[in-house]
């Protein structure tokens, strides 16, 4: 068997296995997403709390900056 024939075989096998792998992965992701979204939906609350915390700290910093600017302008 010539090396070019081997190359052609490798090409056929390679391209098909890459496709098979990713097609299977598409199905797995679809099934996984379906189950997760249906039975373990994300609660809306948790992400808001930390962002609220960060927000209030930002507000404190803003207040501190404002106070400092006002003080330096005196």
């Amino acid at each position: 068997m010539s090396s070019i024939e081997q190359g052609l075989i490798l090409m056929l096998v390679g391209v098909s296995v890459v496709f098979i792998f990713l097609v299977l992965l598409v199905f797995i992701i679809k099934i996984m997403s379906f189950i997760v979204l249906r039975y373990f939906p994300e609660k809306e609350e948790p992400p808001k709390k930390p962002s609220g915390g960060a927000g209030s700290r930002d507000a404190e910093i803003a207040a501190a900056i404002a106070a400092a600017t006002a003080y330096s302008k005196q």
């Binding site: 890459v18 496709f19 990713l22 097609v23 992965l25 598409v26 992701i29 679809k30 997403s33």
Partner: peptide, 9 residues
């Protein structure tokens, strides 16, 4: 997920 096939192509 189907855009994954582009990664295969």
């Amino acid at each position: 997920p189907k855009t994954m096939l582009l990664g295969a192509a």
